[in-house]
Amino acid sequence: MTELDELQKDMLTELFNLGMGSAAAALSEMVSEEVLLSVPEIKFMQKTELTNVLDADSGGQISGVSQEFHGMILGKALLTFPSEKSLELVRLILQDTVPVENISEFEEEALLEVGNIIINAGLSSLADIFEDEITSDLPVFNSGSCEEVIEQTDKNEEYQSTVLYLQVNFTIELQQIKGYVVYLLNVESMENLANSIDKYISKLIN
């Protein structure tokens, strides 16, 4: 399996930081509140480990939006929020567009749109930096335990052993709503990513 060296990891963290900055700005516009963003953390891990990491912080049940992407890299992105905070997030987004009693009817679709915007902001930034194009499929919603959501995200088991775990926490401070973005990449994509980062670094140096 291709592992990234320290310089590549550092560069990837910085690039994702840019993408997530734009994603946080989009989320902030949606909820009309400040969104705090952690520094991205990049790790390679087994999928089972990923379940444990998400489980530890979410308190069990999560709502997840996943999106498959193709192009210079092929993989799946997953955005998760604790299920108990989902409705609160939807209420912030819809504000008075929908009567309070009808908000739950729009929960899934509102979260799909949040996922779509956040995931695409990250991918778009990466594609632009590498001067390439990444196309994404339509977002898919899943909810349940972390294990169930990850299983659903990767139901064809394409990412059995290789998981690039890129963790970014979004926190909507007043409501204490914390979300995660995770990217799953296959082996070939890891190699492509490593090559693209090398090219980008050498362009910067020269």
């Binding site: 734009s22 989009a26 995931i119 695409n120 778009s124 594609a127 632009d128 194009e133 990444i134």
Partner: peptide, 9 residues
């Protein structure tokens, strides 16, 4: 009006 804000799009 899109979430896909890549320069190519």
């Amino acid at each position: 009006l899109t979430a896909n804000i890549q320069a190519s799009i």
